[in-house]
Amino acid sequence: MIYLDYAATYPMTPEALAAYLEAAALPGNPASVHAAGQAARERLEEGRARVAAALGVDARTLIANGGGTEGDNHVLLGVAQAWEEAHGQPGHLVTTLTEHSAVLAPARWLESRGWAVTFLAPDVQGRYTPEQLAEALREDTALVSIHHANNELGTVQDTPALAAVAAARGVPYHTDAVQAPGVLPLDLTGWGVTFATFSAHKWGGPRGVGFLYLKRGAVLPAVTLGGGQEGGLRPGTQNTAGVYAAGVALTHAEAAREETFAHLTRVRDRFLAGVADIPGLRVNQPADASPKVASVTLPGADGEALLMNLDLLGVSASAGSACAAGTMQPSHVLTAIGLGEADARATLRFSFGRATTETEVDAAADALRQAAEWSRG
């Protein structure tokens, strides 16, 4: 099998798996005061400290949680709750049409409950400008939420410039940065973001583990109730083994980030060169997009048939976000940048990792050529 779906999930690295098994063997609850509990607490906090060091932030600004979806929901719903408690009425949210469903779903839920929501429209490459954001801000804007790197196109936003616009108006800024660690440089403090969300399985850690960054002084109430774990913001017994393994995985990923970026650029460009002669094929993302992703459209082909044929030929790819798979709806990201429904359905996403080889992308290019002939035939 040639696995080219790293944007959906990154296979757990050997180092992370070994760390997970080591910590999972510990019997204690990290909240317990006895020796077994404190041994678990040490692994939990070591994992958090490793993630914080890799991201360049204070470990006390990271809340361990269940992943990007939980973090995105916590920010949007928590900020909305705090705003309504302070102002006695709904406010205004600014986000974009190309966000992950983990942002779009709570945004639309808030809209159904009286919130005003501005969904910024992207240009044809999926970008947003500071001027566009400045025009959208209002006196009652409670939050801006714009992703850093898009999971389908790889388009990277100018997060520092966008966050500066929000900061100048005193508006908290959230970025879903799930696709960045281990590939793109991160500077949460320098960017000036208020909140950022991460998922460990995107960098070779375990699934079901993530982190929410809160800038010092940020106001964010809990949206679930229970114990006092994670400063009371995310109650429930922490996933000690998951957090520890996530930290080990990110330590390795960030240490090799520049090398990884260069490698991903080579294999992505080799893949795109290998499929360039497929009749009608179009590349969707900008040249300076994250090299982790290649989005290609084959007009006249059926995306579902393409994926099935690729799978039969031993290649794993996707038609867009894994969280939207099986909905039978065209990608909202692709339609937002101007693709028609038919072309959106004829678009595939190939995504690459550190283990992807040139031999694999050559074989995948040949497989896509064959799958396109079958689908169009």
Rank of each mutant, 00 (worst) to 15 (best):
T359I: 06
F350V: 10
A355P: 02
A276Y: 07
A371H: 00
D269F: 05
A342G: 10
K292G: 14
E358F: 13
D343S: 11
Q285Y: 02
P279M: 15
R345Q: 03
F350Q: 07
G280E: 04
T327E: 15
L312C: 09
R270L: 13
L339P: 00
T357R: 12
G300P: 05
G300R: 06
R282H: 10
L368K: 09
P291L: 07
G353V: 01
R349A: 06
N284Q: 15
R345Y: 03
T297G: 04
E341A: 09
A322P: 00
K292E: 08
F350E: 05
A365Q: 10
T359R: 14
G353K: 02
P330F: 03
L313R: 15
D277I: 11
A363Q: 14
G340D: 15
G326F: 08
R282F: 01
S290C: 07
L310D: 00
A273V: 10
I337P: 00
V283A: 11
D302S: 05
A325I: 10
K292S: 08
M308L: 10
S316V: 05
L313G: 01
E341C: 00
I278C: 09
D366Q: 14
G340I: 03
P330E: 06
E304L: 08
E360S: 09
D343Y: 08
A319W: 00
A364S: 10
A317I: 08
I278N: 03
E304M: 11
L307E: 04
P299Y: 03
V293T: 10
A273Y: 08
D269Q: 15
P286C: 06
Q370I: 15
V361I: 06
S316L: 08
F271K: 03
M308H: 15
V296T: 12
I337L: 06
A365V: 09
G320P: 01
S351F: 02
A325Q: 14
P291Y: 08
R349D: 15
F271M: 07
D311L: 09
R282L: 11
F352S: 01
V315S: 01
A325H: 14
T347C: 12
V361C: 03
R354M: 11
D288V: 08
S290G: 11
S351C: 05
R345F: 07
T327A: 14
G338Q: 12
A276T: 06
S321D: 13
A364T: 07
L368I: 07
A336C: 05
N309Y: 09
V275T: 10
S321C: 13
A325F: 09
R270W: 05
R354G: 03
A336E: 01
V275H: 06
T357C: 15
A344M: 13
A294H: 03
P299Q: 15
D288R: 06
E304V: 15
L334V: 11
L272P: 01
